[in-house]
Design a protein around this nucleic acid. Structure first.
Lengths: 359, 359
DNA sequence: TTTTAGCAGTCAACACATGAGAGTGCTAAT
DNA sequence: ATTAGCACTCTCATGTGTTGACTGCTAAAA
């Protein structure tokens, strides 16, 4: 159910903090996420019932700073969580936020509204996520592996060009145009196509490779480069194709966040969205894990992204992770809410792809 | 050839300026576009050989300001072109900039590299344009009207769902999934499909409507709602579908421009990109004109866009305007260069779509 | 009559000083 | 071990010159 949030690997020697430190760290993170202002000892004791005086809190905060859980922007400011502080919060302190029924409903309907097109469903999932989180959301369409072959259409365009449309149980899953060096005969193409459809229908795409295709087209031969291109399509090796199937949006939400008033960060993010590679990589990594992955600040590996965090989560087709989606926002994001939201969107997508076979 | 730049309608009573005013206005615009700094009388006489003293220039500039061609940010600043000043410059003073051979070559190869997929070609056109102009570029795929029917594929998914792929002389031109209320028989579907293909191949999509489809499927009947959905596809009435076929990119370039250091403008533009409707409308309007259209500042009709300009241009399929592309940038954009560039990209796209039929 | 030099006036931008406010660390008392 | 009290530090907002760029105006020159 994608609820058992597994996150980034813990630093192996992450110690456990005592009860009072834990409580103070948690409160600081909570308050800072809520207000965006560095939080001081007085604020803390006034707003939250900690049972100790500001002076004690000060001492504890100083200790937490020494241990690297808190930062101090300058001497006379309050404390701000460090990456490590957020990490501790996310790994141990966070409690999942309950998503309101109307939001759950919105997610479901938005995704189902677009269910007729595979791409649209994922696109809508990304959209609804960016709207609900007021952050950047991104998502990638499912890998072909787990889908089952339904129909292949080879469409003759001219003697040297063939359009290919692959339909799986999930819908139109891939399409491309292939240029062949040798000439293709339209009738021959139709026969090969029918042959393949007869033999492959219902089969998992996982099992289809060059050898199998060559074998199946022995009696209804096709140009070698066409067969290879088809195999390439099935195994999704065509990188350019992959990129087009990543959806991202919500950049306009950035400007709400005070941390993005910095043009360096802003530019870094816009470039990230433009090139897509990094987003794609994050999602691929997420496929390796069960449940959500959270990356905080420097963990993203880019100095320009130090003020950002990313939450990613895979969704399933059949029983395997097939695609993923994520949210990119300020490091000071509402982790609890976002984790619940991405979880819910991922579940909805998984459910959609599970139910697809029957009308 | 898209070279005879027709722009926005001139204000009906736009007077002609005398030689010296013209020269000064032109120089101010040129200098301001180059530097981004308000230009003063001294700068002008020093950098350009005007043959008069700063005092004279001052008098002329004051007059130009009275007439609305120039603005003065504040009393002790130089002059800046007003919308009207830019308009006069674009309409009368501009001389087309010659595009370097390596840039022309880049455009051609980028567009041809992606020629196998209709969408890709347009996407790449938009990309190359945004890279060369360092602004936001956007483009829409060609309307179906002028394309000729090549092949329709109706793919049976389940008794109540059919995938549709439409291939024209330009490639895969449209596709969708249709849910039918009454059941569809797979064999029946295949027969209808073959029938349609036999009858419609080579025909202009312009001529295909509901009546024709109903007539052609009389002997190989299909559910009424399926026929209607098909007709809708041919005439591209499905709005949601249309939106997905607009490509836009280059938002990261914004931050180079000093005028976008203002968050209001920035946000307005990011929202524009997100919703796509306005971009789409601009492009549709551009379809009505031959050659490029320039919209400057307030002409865009949004207060948040007062610091922006847009250049759009249609491209052709056959002999009719079928799609369009454009650039959105600061009002202080290099109009001469941009006009040449969009013209060239449009020509390249047109050429691609002209040549497509033969391999 | 048109152009120009000279000059006073205006305004943004920058640097700098000043004070208020928030929050700390330290110390001595509880 | 905790807390009250206090001196200290640093940011931020505000205010005040000072500088520099450019103008408009006027009176002289062409």
């Amino acid at each position: 159910m994608a609820k058992d949030n597994k996150k980034e690997p813990l630093p192996p020697d992450e110690p456990e903090l005592d009860r009072r430190k834990t409580s103070i760290l948690g409160t600081v993170v909570y308050e800072y996420i809520a207000t965006g202002e560095p939080v001081g000892s007085a604020t803390l004791t006034q707003k939250y019932n900690l049972g100790v005086s500001p002076a004690t809190v000060r001492a504890e905060m100083a200790a937490l700073e020494d241990e690297g859980y808190l930062d101090q922007p300058h001497t006379s400011a309050g404390r701000v969580p460090s990456d490590r502080g957020y990490r501790y919060y996310v790994d141990r302190l966070i409690q999942p936020e309950v998503i309101g029924v109307e939001e759950r409903e919105l997610i479901r309907t938005e995704i189902h509204r677009a269910r007729t097109q595979l791409d649209s469903a994922v696109d809508h999932a990304s959209h609804v996520l960016s709207n609900l989180t007021r952050n950047i959301a991104f998502a990638v369409v499912p890998r072909l592996d787990n889908q089952t072959y339904r129909h292949l259409q080879l469409i003759w365009v001219n003697p040297h060009r063939v359009h290919v449309v692959l339909v799986t149980d999930l819908g139109i899953a891939a399409q491309t145009t292939i240029d062949t060096s040798s000439e293709v005969d339209p009738d021959q193409l139709t026969r090969a196509c029918n042959n393949l459809n007869a033999q492959l229908a219902g089969r998992s795409l996982h099992d289809i490779d060059v050898r199998l295709l060559e074998e199946l087209t022995r009696e209804t031969p096709l140009p070698a480069d066409l067969v290879h291109a088809l195999a390439g399509l099935f195994t999704m090796r065509d990188k350019a194709e992959v990129e087009r199937r990543l959806f991202a949006g919500g950049a306009n939400n950035l400007l709400d966040q005070q941390e993005f008033r910095d043009f360096r960060t802003l530019r870094a993010i816009l470039e990230l969205l433009e090139e897509q590679q990094t987003l794609y990589r994050w999602l691929q990594e997420s496929l390796q894990h069960e449940g959500a992955t959270v990356s905080i600040g420097h963990e993203l590996g880019s100095a320009d992204m130090n003020e950002c965090s990313v939450v990613t989560i895979p969704y399933k087709v059949g029983d395997r992770n097939a695609g993923a989606l994520g949210v990119l926002g300020p490091r000071r994001m509402q982790y609890a809410r976002l984790l619940s939201l991405v979880g819910h969107v991922a579940d909805s997508l998984s459910a959609l792809f599970q139910n697809e076979p029957q009308p």
